[in-house]
Design a protein around this nucleic acid. Structure first.
Lengths: 98, 98
DNA sequence: AAAATTGTTCGTATTTTTGCGAACAACGAA
DNA sequence: TTCGTTGTTCGCAAAAATACGAACAATTTT
């Protein structure tokens, strides 16, 4: 896309949508919606994927801005990034005009 | 995911999100939201991508169930797949609890 | 029938995503 | 300080996504 046709909103929406484009990542966000925070280990026990794979999915969500990690040694506490979550919420709300 | 942990809802949401995970596809859906139908040619004029690339994106949206094509020779009229759009709407609404 | 229009499909190349296990780093506990 | 716990990063491999132009198919127009 050398010439920019897409609006920033569309770019952002696509970015968030992409981050939510995998069942594991939807699962994580849904869990965080219920309890607002969780540890990678908790997820690792529930999900039938390798630790390293989970770590990558969490990184994806982090890179997309949907979650943030906080060191709580020796673990890492993952929480929803509320600011960006709200943004995503608004974007999807508008997109689906709901 | 040989052992199914994810719910159908989560799988579906991820599927729709994935389909929306590209700016061009967001653009198309947003246009269809405004005018409900459009032709590939219209899009091709506005978007700085090759016809074949656009065709692939439309196929993605079709495969995800978000749009449907109707032959109106020599063109193809693309419309929102209302049933699935509603489903996606509901899924995202619930997901974002909005 | 020949030519033009519309859009898909094919072939190809590049990049990104997904996934795993092994190795590593950081930290608390023994 | 050594050992366990926790989670990331590395190295690799396979699959999927992105993108293009050329070729093709279907239909309408000339």
């Amino acid at each position: 896309m050398e010439v920019k046709i897409m609006s920033d909103e569309q770019q952002k929406l696509a970015r968030y949508a992409k981050a939510l484009g995998h069942p594991v990542r939807v699962y994580v966000m849904q869990l965080l919606g219920q309890q607002s925070c969780c540890y990678s280990g908790d997820l690792s026990e529930e999900l039938p994927i390798a630790k390293s794979t989970l770590s990558q999915h969490l990184k994806e969500l982090k890179d997309a801005g949907l979650i943030q990690g906080e060191i709580e040694a020796p673990r890492i506490k993952y929480c929803v990034n509320k600011e960006n979550w709200s943004e995503a919420q608004e974007l999807f709300k508008t997109f689906f005009r709901i």
